[in-house]
Amino acid sequence: MSLIELILNTFTNSSQFLIEVFKFFPPILILMGLLEAWIPKDKIETHLGHESGIKGMLFAIILGSAAAGPLFAAFPIAKSLSEKGVRAANTVIFLCSWATIKIPILIMESSYLGIRFSLLRLFVTLPFILLMGLIIERLCQNNGSIFSNDH
């Protein structure tokens, strides 16, 4: 492949993804703004905060897997949720559920790879998501604020 071909192909391949990004980002950012403005902090804290326990984790899984859209669209939402008092473990659980076990993915997956494969992957993945949430929360606690860039 020549350099010119490489550059041209990069642009062609990028343009498709560019459309994808700008289809998702504006409405997601608006939703994030609305969430920040209207949803009371104490409500989020009760359902997903430090005292929310197993119920909070289940709620984070349901919220994440009910989503539509690529993972990068989940970042702004997860960020504003975490600023409203969601515990770190649930932020990770929300992000990973959104990434890999959301319903649109499971539907596509089971139609191409079979429902058995898809359900099995779902049940094998779930414990890992919970574990990752708890481990990352633990590892980040030692450093005070979990989302800072200084460490």
Partner: peptide
């Protein structure tokens, strides 16, 4: 679960440490 391409975006929201831990543990998982 792991996205090298979206990691800069993830870092801008959550910081390097969180992004590295989430993506690293997702890779191992």
């Amino acid at each position: 679960m792991v996205g090298l391409s979206s990691s800069l975006l993830e870092i801008s929201y959550f910081g390097k440490r969180f992004t590295f831990l989430r993506q690293g543990s997702s890779f191992i998982s």
